[in-house]
């Protein structure tokens, strides 16, 4: 069942065309890894799907309804599509629990006790129950990113967008974040994941998309794209990631 349908998505910054007409269907339970060199438009594609960036052309259809550009429609869509950022973007003036509660309280208008209970469950899900009362300044990078994931999960998203979730982390902290994402995958969460962790993409994704010059250059199952790429540019990209071991 298709939950997200993207058609003809285009975006340019000044004279530079970042996305030139992307078509993409995402079915429920699919886990799509988006790969590509830096500047290929991976992040922009993700950010256009929940309208962090306004696409210049094209449509995003969620559950059969085309998303319009009115503020109310955008906030409604963003509640249904969770996003996890490279730089975590936790709210520094709120505790870990406060960060996770924030969307429930302010956007969903949930009563405080109920929101707190829900937030505690989400923190437990990412293994951070004991850090609930800590401010972000006192958390490690990996812990921050897990809180950010819990914050996104609290809104019950139908789709999760991960924008290079481990790129800003020290190598020894990458594992704990990937572990949480893998657990979500096993629970059947639908997700789009921009990443440089090719091994992780191979094991977790159901589909791999290789972007080049703002367009989908090649896509298929992890085995097809990562082990036996058809296109020259995909092969060149993979060759450059020597540490890639399946």
């Amino acid at each position: 069942m298709t939950i997200l349908h993207v058609q003809g998505l285009a975006k340019r910054f000044g004279s530079h065309e970042v996305l030139s007409g992307i078509d993409l269907d995402v079915a429920k339970g699919e886990r799509i890894a988006i790969l590509g060199a830096s500047g290929s438009g991976k992040s922009t594609l993700l950010r256009c799907i929940n309208f962090m960036e306004m696409p210049d052309a094209g449509t995003v259809t969620l559950d059969g309804k085309v998303v319009g550009r009115r503020e109310r429609e955008l906030t409604a869509v963003r509640q249904r599509i969770g996003m996890v950022f490279q730089q975590f973007n936790l709210f520094p003036h709120m505790t870990a629990l406060g960060n996770v509660m924030e969307g429930l309280r302010t956007v969903r208008r949930m009563p405080k006790a109920e929101a707190a209970a829900r937030a505690e469950r989400e923190l437990a899900r990412v293994g951070l129950s004991d850090k609930a009362a800590h401010y972000p300044a006192h958390l490690s990078g990996g812990q921050k990113q897990r809180v950010a994931i819990a914050r996104a999960l609290a809104m019950d998203p139908e789709l999760l967008l991960f924008d290079e979730p481990t790129s800003a982390l020290d190598p020894e902290l990458v594992g704990e974040v990937l572990g949480v994402i893998r657990a979500l995958a096993e629970e059947g969460c639908t997700m789009l994941l921009v990443t440089h962790e090719l091994g992780f993409a191979y094991h977790v994704a159901t589909r791999v998309i290789f972007l080049a010059d703002g367009a989908i250059h090649e896509q298929g199952t992890p085995d097809e794209v990562l082990k036996d790429p058809k296109k020259e540019r995909t092969r060149a990209f993979l060759a450059r990631h020597k540490e890639f071991s399946l």
Partner: peptide, 29 residues
């Protein structure tokens, strides 16, 4: 930082909500 706006918007906050709950409390400090 821009990321604060984006994180607030990404959980579905409106512009005024993001200003009141996320941006102003940090800015005022």
């Amino acid at each position: 930082e821009r990321g604060q706006w984006e994180a607030a918007r990404a959980i579905g906050m409106t512009q005024p909500q993001a200003m009141r709950r996320i941006i102003l409390p940090q800015a005022v400090k």
